[in-house]
Every structure is written in structure tokens, then in C-alpha cells.
Design a protein around this nucleic acid. Structure first.
Lengths: 253, 253
DNA sequence: CGACTGATTGAGTTTCCTCAAGAACTGTGG
DNA sequence: CCACAGTTCTTGAGGAAACTCAATCAGTCG
């Protein structure tokens, strides 16, 4: 797969560098000058690929790095003493995970690959060093952290809905929006997570989610085939969201 | 209230300074040297008191500062187009709010005082200036942000519980833990928020919360009198949490 | 003192959960 | 390539928990 070119290291570096990454504008490099970008590049370790089901970090482990999804997807979750778990989020390319570990130097949740996933690792000690030297990077890091916090707020808004159908509709619509950000077709969703994960994320049981998919398919809103979901009627889906799907739509300037 | 002393400004400053604040160890000053503390002090604007029901900032407003609760309490919430809202959190002294505004330079939620509340305002432009000069402050800011994120994860774990009683138990226990951090009696809770706010926060309706309070009082676990709640049997309360109340109890080293 | 807001309690209904069986897809090995 | 086991998902029937509607009670504030 990886042929030996005359200057293999440079090519390798170039291909993986933050500057050439497709996620450039979503990730930490956004708004950073080329000189400073090299500093950032030096701190990014490439973690290669995680196979489906493999954990990136586990709850309780000591914290030493932040991670950015490069391709594929992750789920993050907490396990309680009783053994039951709560899915906290699904993470698509360009999204950061591991921030929760900063406050106590231990990861407070686990992160697991939902499919074959590649990751950029940002050792925190080094990252701190660079943010100290590059104020723009500090600001961008805070922006990205803030974005994750807003995503969690959206999760709560969804969990707060009484009607199960609203929750699923908001979930699907949110996913479509994130697909669009990644320049994917927002109407053609490939759900990398199981029905169990979706249900847990939404605060429901698997059977309810399954029934809702069937109901929404019968209503002509979706076409559902296991992990392949097509949004046929975005207008009707938006209606099901009960005006709560886009709580942050209005940015009054 | 504020008598004229020979050097009024110094006294005033001393009383309000981060160094003398009781929340010192919970807040941004933690682990900062005295010299750097003066730099931080200079950026902190005192917002004085907000009366009950007054908003600190409103969803959609442009972002320009972070805020720390000094005394009293806040609730943060999002309003959807339909008019219904979701309570995202209750904020006690030492806790930071406003981080969600960083990602788009607009506040993505609103914050309102639940009682007479005093606030420290940290204009973000100035704060950034200081964090650039004081690496320890940058690290501490990230820690505090991370702590807020962990708090949101706890909220989700609670919302994910099916049983309404578990949710309320986890809520009360979490509040007790935060009271303890503030050196208050963790068994004597004074709930500054309404039953409606509690219910909304838990993803329930007011009547259910009210019934649960009554049921837990009948079971001898609590004594409830409006906003005054005493935890009579912490052991039974912990039992109701269903082993999910303290998901982060184990920090395996 | 009376209107008002906030909280409690009751009765009835709906939604979603539980339990259970069956169908469809995945992957492995012959 | 097919058979088979294992997993994941779907669908059904029944019941329980929480919601809705409604009335009452208690504090609060003018």
C-alpha cells in the first residue's frame, strides 16, 4: 500500500499534515498561520487506525492527550458501578474527545471506535507548550471545546423531550447537519452505531427506536435499511422535531 | 453599607480580590502565584448583585465575557422556537458559565439568577491576554472548563435513567456533593429553583417531581418543606441512585 | 386582606417499557 | 458456495410508569 518513494518521510508527513487535512477548517488549524502550523504539526501524533470495537481510552485511565477524529467515528460513554452505561456522544471527523480528562488528570469516560477509525493524538503537555507560543491556537482550542459543549447542550435538549419520536427526529436531523458540515450528503445517513447505542443515547430502549424507524418509514419520512437511512422528507422530519430541533438557529447579530 | 475609609479603594479591592475570595481553590486562581494573581485580579470586573429572575446573558446575545458565580445561584437554559425550554444546569458558587458562547461569539443559552446572586465577570479579550502571559492560568481555565463538561456528563447519566425516582435521587445526591465542596452541610439543601425547573432539568413534569418528594418523605428518606429539603437517610438515597449516582467514583491510578 | 403564584394531591389515560418470539444479516468453516 | 451459529434487529402482546387534566392547598406580595 505504501510504496517506497525517494523521500518517503516528507511525502508521509505532507499527506498527514494539518495543513493538507480535509478537516483543516473544522479542527485546530483553523485560522493559524503556516509557520505556526508547523509547530502544531510537530505535536500531532498519528494513532493510525482503530478497528471497530477498539477503545481509544477507558474511563479511569490517566489522561495525557486530547484526540481528534480524522476519519470514521467514535462513541463516548460512562459506565456506572452497576455495569449499566450511558452513551454521551457520537463523534464524527473533526470532533475532539478527551476534554473531560483535564479536570482530574483521569479520563472520566471511555471512547470506542464504531467502525475503522483513524485518530490524531495531541499529547497535552506538548499542546500546552504550543498554545503558549501561539495565542491563536489557544483561542481556537477554546472554540473547539466550546463547540463540544454546545453539542452536549443539544443532546440535553433532545433528552428533555417527552415524546420518543421527537428525540429520534432531532437526533437524525442533528446528524444530517453534521454530515453537511463534512460535505457529505445530509439525506443519506450511514449510522455507524447500533440500535442499542442510539436508544441508550436517546434515553430509550432499543425496541422503541426500532418501532419508531418503522413508523417513520411507514409515514414516508425515511427509508430505513439497517444502518442505511435516507431522509426522504426533510420537511416532515423537521416537523417532528417540534421546533426544538434547531434551538440555536437564530444568531441575532 | 460601604463606609468611607482613608484608603477606600484598597480596602474595596482587597475584599473583592481573587486572592481573598473564599472560592479561591475552586475557581481560576487555584495554583496561581501571587504576582500573577494581581494580573488576573485586574481583569475581573465585579458585576454586583443580580436579583432573582434577572438574566446575566440571553441566548443570541453577542459573547464578550465568561462569568463565575460568587454567591447565590444561576440556572442556564435554551429556548426553542416553539417557546418551550430546557434547563441545562444549575450553577453554584465557584462554577463558570458562558463557555458555550466562544464557538460562535454568541451566547447559545441564557443564564438567569435563581436568587440574589453576585457574579465575577471575566471579559474574554482581557482574560486571553492574561492567559497568554500566565501559562498556569491557561491550564487552570481548561481544568475549569473540563469540570463543567464532566458536570454535563453527570446530567446526561441522570437523564438517561428510566426511573423518575432514580433521577431525582441522583439530582439530590449531586447537589449534596456540591454543597460539601462549598463547605455547606450536605444534608441540608435549600433548593433555589422551582419544582418546574427541577422537573424540566430532569426531563419530567412538575407533578411527578412533587409526588416523588412526597414519596421519599413518606419513606423517611427526606424531610421536605418547599425549598427546604433535609436528607435524613443518605444511605437510602444512595440506594435509590441505583449505583449510577457516582459514576466517576473510581479513579484507578 | 385578597389575589396570585407555586406546590400538592387525585383520577384517568397514554406512552413507552418489559417480556418474548421470530426474522434478517454477519461471519465462519466445511 | 452453502450451511450454520451468533448477533442484531424487528414485531407483537401486555402492563406499569409517568403524563394530562383538574381541583385544592399554602405560602407571598402588593
Amino acid at each position: 500500500m505504501m510504496e517506497n518513494s525517494p523521500i518517503p518521510i516528507d511525502l508521509d508527513h505532507l499527506r498527514r499534515s494539518c495543513g493538507s487535512c480535509a478537516l483543516h477548517e473544522l479542527c485546530l488549524p483553523a485560522g493559524i498561520g503556516t509557520d505556526d502550523l508547523e509547530l502544531l504539526d510537530a505535536t500531532v501524533h498519528d494513532k493510525r487506525a482503530l478497528d471497530r470495537g477498539k477503545t481509544l481510552f477507558r474511563q479511569g485511565e490517566s489522561f495525557h492527550a486530547l484526540y481528534v477524529v480524522r476519519s470514521g467515528s467514535l462513541k463516548s460513554f460512562v459506565e456506572s458501578a452497576g455495569g449499566d452505561l450511558q452513551v454521551l456522544g457520537f463523534h464524527l471527523p473533526g470532533e475532539i474527545v478527551g476534554i473531560d480528562g483535564l479536570t482530574s488528570d483521569h479520563h472520566m469516560c471511555s471512547a470506542e471506535a464504531l467502525e475503522r477509525t483513524s485518530i490524531c493524538e495531541l499529547p497535552y503537555a506538548q499542546l500546552q507548550h504550543v498554545t503558549g507560543a501561539v495565542p491563536a491556537l489557544h483561542r481556537q482550542l477554546m472554540r473547539v471545546v466550546s463547540r463540544e459543549m454546545v453539542a452536549e447542550h443539544e443532546h440535553m435538549v433532545m433528552m428533555g423531550r417527552q415524546q420518543a419520536q421527537e428525540r429520534l427526529a432531532i437526533f437524525l436531523q442533528g446528524l444530517a447537519v453534521r454530515y453537511a458540515r463534512l460535505s457529505r450528503d445530509p439525506a443519506t445517513l450511514t449510522l455507524p452505531m447500533s440500535r442499542y447505542d442510539i436508544a441508550n443515547y436517546l434515553g430509550l430502549v432499543m425496541e422503541t427506536v426500532s418501532r419508531l424507524f418503522s413508523r417513520m418509514e411507514a409515514a414516508g419520512i425515511l427509508s430505513v435499511n439497517r444502518k442505511a437511512v435516507r431522509i426522504l422528507r426533510p420537511d416532515l422530519l423537521a416537523e417532528l422535531c417540534g421546533q426544538s430541533g434547531t434551538p440555536y438557529a437564530d444568531h441575532a447579530d
